[in-house]
Design a protein around this nucleic acid. Structure first.
Length: 510
RNA sequence: GGUCUGUUCAUCUAAGGGUUAGGAUUCAAGAUUUUCAUUCUUGCCAUAGGGGUUCGAAUCCCCUACAGACUACCA
């Protein structure tokens, strides 16, 4: 018997933008699938219509695409198991709920939300908690307690009801989690979860088990927050008689806030100054805007690389990985069990690593929009050249401007600290001399400027530190930038001289 | 409260009974760059606590502490 093809799914609910933890879950699923030559499916879990947010599904699709996570089967890709949106599979679930009722694994419950709330509040008032489980179900309004004919007439009259799972009594449910190893639960601690809601939709628990079965999912890789419901899911597979083909489970550790307590949440980003979403998002209801990695200038491969190392490690000291290398190296048994704090600083470092690895041409292209926003039009060749010269000093593409704006326009101001430090008596005269000297340079190429320049300064007996730093101040307006002769070459002889003359005219020596 | 899960430098992590507990990020210092950044070198910094088991424990067991998740007709 050959083992079935590996099939995994990422199953977000379209209740808002996908956050970075969701991206990591999707990534690990994707890497696992690709590593084993299997399929990666996207299933939209929109069984809660009240929480549906317009645009969320499109956001998820766009975010995954931006990250380079490719979907084999999903709402857009289709596939033999279509549809991939649970709202469109609605008709399917009732029959499965019925199957569970017929086999005495589930029952109808007629208690209203108000009645249940009252029970909960009452229990809390007495310092306890109310749970709908095998100890309380005997005293509630359901098909286990109501006479058969009463029950039938309630159903026939269209009385609102839900279907609940009949949790077995005192059973140990055991399972081997691919990340956590052996875990076990006693069913007495578990409640009779709602499987089918009064609005005619299944809950997550029913839908996810039915769909995973139907879609031939072999491995369920999801966040740790699902661990407590694993026994219910296992019991459902059993009740349906699907135990033999039940997927294996792997529960990923959580991603925690950089500081403070708890898991990373939506609001942390703006409060702590980094994005928690891959793409920017505007909440259609509140109108609030959230920053995104893409809009903040992060490169997707750097973000993916950083995320891959949150909870997983290759066991070697390599830490720069392309998607292909991640696929090659990834395995679930190198995923840790404990939660990881998200580190915005390291994310920046990864971005820098990817930035300097990008070709000058590619990087120049992503810098172009920033340049255009400044209203600057220059030949693309120049942008590429400048990019190559300054990219090592940048963490983000937009910083090419901060590091190299003087290639595109004369400095509009001079750094006062540097002026008072460098622009001493006598310096303007020396600079005027340099300007004059530049007119005599035969070939305007960096090395051919540098050589006679050094001779000239030596002959004059001037101090090199003074000359170089002052010249830099004239050309860039401060004390930064790449090699000074490279700057001269690129901006050209006339511009170089003009900037020196401008500085001599405007700056006053102490 | 109950159930489940976890705990190695500030942060991400390695070491699956035997190493001076390794690497990376951050931070600091030095070198290089007659500038800034990069780069390089160095430094700082950890096995939550207590009991076992063992010749030997970060690693196996127990207890405590702390942390997190879950405890909806949400996923």
């Amino acid at each position: 018997m050959t083992s079935p093809k590996t099939r995994v799914r990422f199953a977000p609910s379209p209740t808002g933008p996908l956050h970075i933890g969701g991206v990591r879950t999707a990534l690990f699923n994707y890497l696992f699938a690709r590593h084993h030559g299997g399929d990666f499916l996207l299933r939209i879990e929109d069984t809660d219509q009240s929480r549906y947010v317009p645009g969320a599904e499109e956001y998820i699709l766009e975010a995954l695409a931006w990250c380079g996570i490719k979907i084999d089967e999903g709402p857009r890709e289709r596939g033999v198991h279509a549809p991939y949106r649970q709202s469109e599979r609605k008709a399917l679930y009732a029959a499965y709920a019925q199957q569970l009722i017929d086999s005495d694994n589930a029952y109808y419950a007629f208690d209203t939300p108000e009645e249940l709330d009252a029970l909960r509040n009452n229990a809390e008032a007495h310092g306890g908690t109310f749970t709908y489980d095998n100890s309380t179900r005997k005293g509630l309004k359901n098909s286990l307690t109501l006479p058969g004919d009463v029950c039938q007439s309630l159903l026939a009259s269209g009385e609102h009801h839900v279907v609940r799972f009949k949790m077995p009594e005192n059973r140990i449910v055991e399972e081997t989690d691919l990340i956590r190893g052996h875990v076990q639960f006693n069913t007495d601690q578990l409640d009779d979860k709602v499987l089918f809601k009064s609005d005619g939709m299944p809950t997550y628990h029913l839908a996810n088990v039915v769909d995973d079965h139907l879609m031939e999912i072999t491995h369920v890789i999801r966040g740790e927050e699902w661990l407590p419901s694993m026994p219910l899911h296992i019991l459902l597979y059993e009740a349906f008689g699907w135990k033999a083909t039940m997927p294996q489970f792997a529960h990923l550790p959580l991603i925690l806030k950089p500081v403070g307590k708890g898991k990373l949440s939506k609001r942390d980003g703006d409060q702590m100054g980094f994005p928690v979403f891959p793409l920017a998002w505007k909440d259609p209801k509140t109108g609030e805007n959230y920053r995104g990695y893409r809009e903040d200038g992060y490169l997707p491969d750097g973000l993916i690389n950083m995320l891959s190392l949150l909870g997983w490690n290759p066991g070697t000291e390599q830490e720069i990985f392309s998607m292909e290398q991640l696929i090659e190296a990834f395995s679930l048994d190198r995923v840790g069990k404990s939660g990881s704090r998200f580190d915005p600083e390291k994310t920046k470092w990864f971005n820098h690593q990817y930035l300097i690895r990008h070709s000058d041409y590619e990087l120049a292209r992503s810098f172009l929009p920033y340049l255009e926003a400044k209203g600057i039009e220059v030949p693309f060749d120049l942008v590429v050249k400048v990019t190559g010269l300054v990219k090592e000093r940048c963490h983000f593409a937009y910083e090419i401007w901060d590091q190299g704006f003087f290639f595109f326009q004369a400095p509009v101001s001079y750094d006062e600290k540097i002026v008072s430090k460098r622009w001493k008596d006598g310096v303007p005269g020396m600079m005027a001399g340099i300007a004059g000297f530049f007119r005599t340079v035969a070939t305007w190429h960096a090395p051919e400027i540098k050589e006679p320049f050094s001779q000239y300064v030596t002959e004059k007996g001037w101090n090199f530190g003074t000359i170089m730093n002052s010249l830099r101040l004239c050309l860039v307006g401060g004390s930064f930038g790449p090699d000074i002769f490279e700057i001269c070459e690129i901006i050209g002889r006339e511009e170089t001289i003009a900037r020196i003359e401008l500085a001599v005219r405007t700056l006053h020596a102490e």
